[in-house]
Deep mutational scan, measured.
Amino acid sequence: MTTFKLIINGKTLKGEITIEAVDAAEAEKIFKQYANDNGIDGEWTYDDATKTFTVTE
């Protein structure tokens, strides 16, 4: 398992979430479901060097 981080730069929600996932594809699926569940819709980026996803509304 690898640790992945999501940085949320939303209009109403900001913060960071860290999860353990098998790979970046699994982490992205989990993070996008979390964002969808919380009404966050924005532009996604991923930095493989730091294993960090960012979503900006």
Rank of each mutant, 00 (worst) to 15 (best):
I7G: 03
K11Y: 11
F4R: 00
T45R: 10
V22Y: 02
Y34A: 04
M1V: 12
A24T: 11
K51A: 13
I7Q: 12
A25E: 08
V22I: 13
E16N: 13
T45M: 15
A24W: 15
A35S: 11
D41C: 06
T3V: 03
K51H: 05
A49I: 08
G10H: 07
T54M: 15
A21R: 06
W44P: 01
T54S: 08
K29A: 04
G15T: 07
T3C: 02
K51S: 08
N38H: 14
A49K: 11
A27R: 00
G42E: 02
D23N: 14
T3R: 05
G42Y: 04
L13K: 07
W44K: 00
V55N: 03
L6H: 00
K14N: 12
I30D: 05
G39W: 06
A49T: 07
I8S: 04
E26D: 14
N38P: 01
G42T: 02
G42V: 03
I8P: 01
N9F: 14
F31C: 01
T52G: 07
N36W: 05
G39D: 03
K11M: 04
I40V: 04
K51I: 10
Y34G: 01
A24K: 13
F53M: 12
G15C: 04
A25M: 14
D47N: 14
I40R: 02
Y46E: 01
A49G: 09
K29T: 09
T50W: 06
T45G: 05
T52R: 09
A27S: 05
Y46C: 01
E20D: 12
A27Y: 00
L13A: 12
T18S: 10
G15V: 06
T12H: 15
T12M: 02
T56I: 07
I7S: 04
L6S: 01
Q33K: 14
T18V: 09
G10R: 05
W44Y: 03
F4Y: 12
K11P: 04
Y34H: 10
W44F: 08
E26N: 06
Q33D: 07
E26H: 13
W44L: 11
K51M: 08
Y46P: 00
A35L: 11
I7Y: 12
T50V: 03
G10D: 14
T52A: 11
G42H: 13
K14Q: 03
M1T: 10
T45C: 05
E20I: 07
N9M: 13
